[in-house]
Amino acid sequence: MADVLFNVFALLTVIAAAGVVLNRNAVNASMCLLLSLVGVAGLFVALDAYLLAFLLLLVYAGAIVALFLFIVMLLDAKGDVPAPIHKIPLLARIMAFALVTVGLISFFTRGRIVSPDLATTPALGSSLKLYAYQLFTIYLLPVQILGFLLLIAMLGVIVLSKKFEGMDDIK
């Protein structure tokens, strides 16, 4: 059962991600992004990280994609045409091809990590208590810095999007 779910969500994630790149329409692309994020949340659940799956849906799918959609509608962004292949320099084409070849060869011949047994490994990510403990002991300073980061980001967004009176000469 877990295998089937893993395969379904993995397929959903990758196909929807391809949809983000391939869709001409920006609205469709953001909808594909939403679908891809749902797939990633499913993978998180398969990895026993329930809180992170929930947060991913809440923050990414709920807030970020909604913000993207809002801006796409606001700016009325037109679809675009991808760069035609004959415009890409020959050197870049050769290098990209070589990189993909080397990557595929190394993926199939080596780089196999021995997967630890999941049954014996404790699923620490499923425990809500552990997150709280870690965030308020070991990672207390990063949490505080993150709070300042959010405050600074908020101020920055206000400064960026507000039109100030009598500042035309500076701009």
Binding site: V59, S115, Q134, L146, L149
Partner: peptide, 25 residues
């Protein structure tokens, strides 16, 4: 994080989510 039985990766993802929200805004 799951396959090694540690907590640090999960907490790091928590931070990444927060920073991503600020970054997108």
């Amino acid at each position: 994080s799951r396959f090694n039985g540690t907590m640090d990766g999960n907490v790091f993802v928590f931070f990444i989510l927060t920073v991503a929200a600020a970054e997108v805004a």
